[in-house]
Design a protein around this nucleic acid. Structure first.
Lengths: 344, 344
DNA sequence: TTGTACGCGTTATCAT
DNA sequence: ATGATAACGCGTACAA
């Protein structure tokens, strides 16, 4: 079956292509009757406008793209919902695009910008390590949302919304210290990982230092083999904790830098016939649903995801409407005390 | 800044546009030197080809689209990974497109088919209630993966990969019955939900019947108010279970039709000061990670997600290569016995 | 090996 | 209100 175009419809209707185009796009300058007639013919013939042609021709479109890095993380789900709602509220359309782990998000953004005539971009998650120069190629307003950024880039060159990972990480480790824990293991991604993992690890170091707890390299734990396990997954936390328990290295608390990993850690502890928190305290990070629903509930740092999402959109549209230039917003996160930690 | 096109590059390089095009697309008929020269100029000028124009011009592209319905469900993550890997293995490119809950996936597919010159489509998740006629509009091969389908559509009209939701649901409820449970509550989406929920509910009915257990309407539980809670979420399971416990209706087991809901159910039980499984047994469905990592681990039905994903791609490419026509594959799922259920 | 010119399907401008 | 036609940016016959 031949692909049917706007010209075919025009021919069938006995009108010009422009009239058909007007019918499709709700243009004012068109007779109601002819419009309905055309729309009917379109329905009957299952005609579907080609978006490539439309995008090519259109000089601008009201669409915001959200680029999300990596396989979808439940952490982002609530944010995406807000993005979607807010963007639609503003009568813009919302385009979600996943960018693969090894892809360069800026390149993708550059492509999309031309292809879809974007009005704005939200970069969601992951870690940003691009040159300023590259960032400047972006012609449209954009906001980095919950993204770690290398220090090298001048803050005035971009807008961002995030929590202070170092500080919040410090907060929860400090809490563990104040509970009397002195042997606190941390579960973290591999050292190669130049990501938020690095920032949270820094917070851990600093908290130990301020509490005069000597640092023990054996308690910084990550997985060296078996790279096919997702870094922030339950399985990762489980496997690492299992090895930790078997290693015989002494510890009284585990700080996993994500809630999922904390869940895995708990499971490994249970399987070893131990109890949380009586034998070991466990803390996580992010404040995802599971930290509340797990048994025991998990002490964690809750990121105000919805608020951050709203703010991301607000900033983006402020830039689009020229109300504002770059803005960098840091949200405070909240220490949620669950049943998984105890005083010792 | 003006958007730079292939003609600008050609002009700068002092060559024709076709030569530039050849350089971009790795065409054989081009001198290595000129090619490198052109590529260098492209880099320097940050030229990025416009995909809309490319798609418009191209008669075909080697790309497979995966359309996923609803906000991303962790259930699909593992499948997506397989899709991505397999599609890339075949030297095709992989396009993930999320379709909103209220959007019509066929319409989206039809659009994408023209826009991106797709070679194949995978529909992932949700429920399919389109007319055969509409399905036939799809010009490219497609496979429905883990999707419930209304009975009305002739199986020979489409390909699919799924588990038998009724049968598997029956299996786990039957297991509960065999453990001696006679008062089994089920947590399910609202009755309006014409989705897999309906199928799993049918399995529940049938299992009760076959075990001569009188059906008690009060034990079919769902949330009427508070529609903003996601149907398959932990919160949904939690809230429904809380009301169930407060209602005073007697039961000894809860069957939640998703693992997430089962987790929420457990939490509600713990908060009521009760124990799982000593006071109440809890069962889930899907076999997601959390069912293993939860405490207690949750009895569930594990869908062989990876295998199903591989099979989806296999079938799709068989159709693309004309090796095969439509194929409907049902995978068996496995009853995983966890710590959340017990004999009574 | 390289360049010219046409067409992909649509929207927008300009007449009518 | 409607129709003809020129872009939009690119790939590719075809000619050179």
């Amino acid at each position: 079956m031949e692909t049917i175009t706007i010209m075919d419809i025009a021919k069938i209707c006995g009108v010009g292509v422009s009239t058909v185009s007007r019918a499709i796009n709700n243009h004012p300058d068109i007779n109601e009757e002819t419009k309905n007639m055309i729309l009917k013919v379109i329905k009957e013939n299952n005609y579907i406008p080609n978006n490539s042609a439309r995008n090519l021709k259109r000089s601008a479109s009201k669409t915001i793209a959200v680029l999300i890095k990596g396989i979808s993380n439940p952490f982002y789900n609530n944010m995406l919902k807000v993005f979607e709602k807010e963007i639609q509220n503003k009568k813009y359309s919302f385009l979600l695009h996943r960018v693969e782990e090894q892809e360069d998000e800026i390149d993708i953004a550059l492509e999309l910008e031309k292809e879809k005539r974007l009005k704005g971009i939200v970069f969601l998650g992951g870690f940003f390590s691009h040159s300023e120069e590259k960032l400047k190629q972006l012609q449209v307003p954009f906001v980095l949302s919950t993204i770690g950024v290398t220090e090298k880039i001048d803050k005035s060159e971009y807008s961002s919304v995030a929590v202070d990972d170092i500080k919040e990480s410090y907060k929860i480790v400090d809490y563990l210290c104040k509970l009397g824990h002195k042997k606190i293991a941390i579960i973290t991604p591999t050292p190669m990982d130049e990501s938020i993992g690095k920032l949270r690890l820094q917070g851990y170091f600093k908290a130990l230092e301020d509490n005069q707890i000597p640092f023990n390299q054996n308690l910084v734990r990550y997985m060296e083999e078996n790279i096919d396990t997702d870094t922030y997954s339950m399985k990762y936390g489980y496997e690492v904790t299992k090895r930790l328990l078997e290693s015989g290295d002494e510890f009284t608390a585990i700080y996993a830098i994500s809630d999922s990993m904390a869940v895995g850690a708990c499971k490994a502890i249970f399987e070893a016939g131990k109890h949380v928190p009586n034998d070991y305290s466990v803390a996580g990070f992010d404040g995802m649903d599971i930290s509340f629903y797990y048994n025991p509930s998990i002490t964690t740092i809750r990121q105000p995801v919805e608020a951050m999402a709203y703010e991301t959109i607000r900033i983006l549209f402020d830039i689009i409407h020229n109300k504002n230039s770059q803005e960098n917003k840091i949200f405070p996160a909240e220490l949620i005390i669950g049943q998984s930690t105890r005083q010792i």
